[in-house]
Design a protein around this nucleic acid. Structure first.
Lengths: 199, 199
DNA sequence: GCTTCACTTGAACGATCGTTCAAGCGACCC
DNA sequence: GGGTCGCTTGAACGATCGTTCAAGTGAAGC
């Protein structure tokens, strides 16, 4: 649609907001923060977005629509085994924690807990992001040779639960060990689930 | 007013702030919110607290010092079995979710993820709250007849991880089922850990 | 050349934020 | 009675918030 020469202000604003929301949260990021970091003027922002919340909606849509390219593809590059892919994704979050000295983990989880009374479209997008995540994991679990009795959807949700809880503790203690130990427990759990059928 | 009871403005401010921080978060709670709901004046608040952040510190200290009376004692009333106590505590969080139609879960977890760059005293208090929680759970696990090889500290942290992640998903989806399914996975995990030694 | 229109510019707005402070109150000690 | 002091009162402050808008730009269609 837009020629390559256009500055693509809308996208620049969204990418900046994505970065700032992840780093400082939604409430602590001011519109003028977004404007100065994205080199845009308030009039431009309000030309594309009715208000600040609609910038958040745009960011959550980017996460939702980009989960494959932005998250799964990089995490799963060179990893074929479906169970390994589960832990490769978790390792990607570990990497984000390490890069930021345990400051930033999962941007969706942070926003989900920060925004206490979200308007319906925001809540819905947060939920969609979680659902897409667990659906991707469920795909791995389906490929994996799990015993028949295992509840794949429940286990996929549990893996998200573990990631979010582990990120929260690692961030709070500023210590990656809290993340690692929870992941290790999850690994044990999945091993026991697999092994139970063999016994 | 009631002359027999001391006004105890400081405590009234803290209890109000505790309530508001849990309901709206720290950033979205204004000082004037606290003042009007606690029937205090700004001068009184700033007489007791250097600033808003010190109110948060006071609230986190209340949570830390009151974990036994406010959280564990009510949850464990009439429950003696140590493993049952673990799930009774989790059931207490389930109750908070239900009472609020899946809006409020764990106030510490919400604050931990909302406050992205906490000053050291705040971060330290959040970490202390988590540590006290896992230490209490570890006490249960020590009493329980777990096989010798089980990592009690790691498992206690994993139980907190599960609670926080499960609360996050239930809140985001506004559906208690997301909480329940993660707890069920945890129950399986603990059952498998116990049973493995018997096999 | 003129019009149209998507987009940009940036000053300005009212609201609300956290915070300050001079003044006042009242219980207790001298 | 006078003085001290912990606590209260509430108006006021400057800063910053999200948002508005009138004016301007420039490419495309006629």
């Amino acid at each position: 649609m837009a020629p390559s020469t256009t500055p693509d202000t809308r996208r620049r604003i969204l990418l900046t907001a994505m970065e700032l929301f992840a780093a400082k949260g939604y409430g602590s990021t001011s519109v003028s923060d977004i404007l100065s970091r994205s080199q845009a003027n308030s009039g431009s922002l309000y030309h594309f977005f009715p208000g600040k919340q609609d910038v958040l909606i745009g960011v959550l849509e980017m996460y939702r629509d980009g989960i494959q390219e932005m998250l799964l593809d990089p995490a799963w590059r060179g990893v074929e085994d479906p169970v390994e892919r589960v832990f490769a994704l978790l390792a990607a979050y570990r990497g984000m924690l390490l890069e930021s000295e345990c400051l930033y983990g999962c941007p969706i989880g942070s926003l989900a807990l920060e925004i206490h009374e979200p308007d319906p479209p925001v809540r819905e997008l947060l939920a969609q992001n979680f659902t897409n995540w667990t659906t991707a994991i469920q795909g791995c679990l389906n490929e994996a040779g799990l015993p028949g009795g295992v509840d794949r959807k429940g286990l996929a949700e549990f893996i998200l639960t573990t990631m979010e809880g582990a990120v929260m503790q690692a961030r709070t203690h500023r210590e990656i060990g809290y993340f690692d130990r929870s992941i290790e427990q999850l690994r044990q759990h999945m091993a026991l689930l697999t092994q139970r059928a063999l016994a």
